Amino acid sequence: MKSLKLFTAIALTAILGFTSCQSNESEEVGTNPNTNSSTSPTASNYERAAKNNGSEDDFLDGNACTELLFPLTATVNGKQITLISKLDFSTVLNIMGEFNDDSDAVTFNFPIRVKTSNYTEVIVNNQAELDALKEECEQAEEVGKDAISCIDINFPVTMLTYSISLEQTGTVVLESQEQLYTFMTDLQSDELFAVNYPINVTLSNGTSTEINSDTEFQNAVSECVQYEEEKDEAKETAVEVEAILTGTKFKVESFVTAGVDTANEYADWSIEFTNDLKVVAKDVVNATLNEVEGTYTVSSEIEAFVTIDFASNTTVSALGNDWVVTNYSSALITLKSKTDASVTLAFKKI
C-alpha cells in the first residue's frame, strides 16, 4: 500500500501545467487516493443524494419519486381544491385531518405535470400513468436506487476529475443538487472523480456536520437512512394507535406516578376518543356529573406520541400529558410520560 501511495504521489506531481492551487489538490488526492469510478459506492451515494426529492407531497400522490408541479387541481374528500404553490398544502391537510376515521381520497384533474427523481418533467394524463410511475418508484426503493432524502449537501461542491491513469483532467464546481446529479450520471467508464473535501451537509434531524472523506459521507448516509427508517416505523405505529383509539371507549387500567398506581381513582370513568380529535371522560356510575371534554393528537418522530389535554382542576386532569407509546394491541395501549419515564398510563378497551 505504501508503494502504491508513493507511486501515485510521484505520478501526480510529475504532471505539467498545473497551477499552484491544482498542484495542492493533486497532492492531497495523491497522498489519499480517494478517486472513484462511476460504479463506486461513493458515486452511488452522491447520485442518490442528488436525486430530486418528491416526498414532500406524498400525502397527495403517494409517490416519493415524483414532485407535483403547479398549478394543479384535485378533489380531496369530495372537495375540489386548486393548488398554486406549496402554501396550499395546508388546505389539503386540514381537509384530510378533519376526521381521523375516514379514508382520505384524492382524485386529480388530469392532465397534471410532475418532475421525476432524475429532474425530467412528465405530463401524466390519467391515474394509470400515475400508478405506473409509483410502481417504478417502489421498484427503485427495493433495489436501493431511490433518492436519499435525509441528507442535504450544502453547495457549492468541487469535484476533481481524473483519467484512469490518475492524471487530473479538470476541476468542476457544482452549485446545485441537479448539477451534482448530472455530473454523476454523465461520468464515463474511463473517468474517475474525487470529492474536494471538506464539504458540509445538513441531516434530516436538523443537524449540520462537516464531511472530510468518502467514508464519513457513507457513515452519514447510513445514519440518516437508519433515522428515516425509525421515523417511518414510528409513523406506522402512530397510524395504528390512532385507529385503535378512534371511536373507542377505554378505562384506566393503570396510572403509576412516583411508584404508586392510582387507577382506582378512575374506576368509575370511561375515556372515549372521538373521530374529531376530542377525548371525553364520563362518570359511568354517577350520571349527574358532567362529562369532561378535552383534546388529543397522535403524532410521531422516532417514537409515536399521544398528547392528551384536559382542562385543569377536573377529576381527570392528571391524565393529560405528552405520552410516548410503549406498547399497544387492539385492546390495550400503554404509555409513558415524554418527560418522566417513571410516569406510566395504560388504557384498556371497554
Score class of each variant (00 low, 15 high):
residue 293 E to S: 10
residue 241 V to Y: 05
residue 112 I to S: 02
residue 282 K to L: 14
residue 296 Y to F: 13
residue 172 V to D: 10
residue 223 E to F: 06
residue 89 F to E: 07
residue 64 A to W: 02
residue 296 Y to D: 08
residue 132 A to V: 05
residue 21 C to M: 00
residue 56 E to M: 06
residue 231 K to D: 03
residue 248 T to K: 15
residue 334 T to L: 02
residue 70 F to E: 11
residue 245 L to G: 07
residue 253 E to R: 00
residue 149 S to M: 08
residue 319 L to S: 09
residue 318 A to Q: 12
residue 16 L to Q: 15
residue 321 N to H: 01
residue 322 D to G: 06
residue 253 E to C: 04
residue 59 F to V: 07
residue 125 N to Y: 11
residue 232 D to N: 13
residue 46 Y to G: 03
residue 141 E to H: 03
residue 277 L to D: 05
residue 262 T to R: 11
residue 74 A to R: 07
residue 270 S to M: 08
residue 204 S to L: 08
residue 326 T to Q: 14
residue 333 I to W: 00
residue 338 K to G: 04
residue 155 F to T: 04
residue 131 D to C: 01
residue 298 V to A: 01
residue 16 L to M: 12
residue 230 E to A: 14
residue 142 E to H: 09
residue 10 I to C: 10
residue 310 F to H: 04
residue 339 T to Q: 12
residue 170 G to S: 01
residue 79 K to H: 02
residue 143 V to E: 12
residue 81 I to H: 11
residue 221 V to I: 14
residue 266 Y to S: 03
residue 294 G to E: 11
residue 155 F to E: 11
residue 61 D to C: 10
residue 281 A to R: 02
residue 205 N to V: 07
residue 263 A to L: 03
residue 300 S to W: 00
residue 62 G to D: 00
residue 276 D to L: 00
residue 298 V to W: 07
residue 331 A to V: 07
residue 301 E to P: 01
residue 183 F to K: 02
residue 222 S to W: 02
residue 78 G to N: 08
residue 211 I to E: 08
residue 198 P to R: 10
residue 49 A to N: 10
residue 102 D to H: 11
residue 15 I to Y: 12
residue 54 G to R: 05
residue 91 T to H: 07
residue 258 A to T: 13
residue 317 S to T: 14
residue 282 K to Q: 14
residue 151 I to L: 15
residue 61 D to G: 06
residue 45 N to M: 13
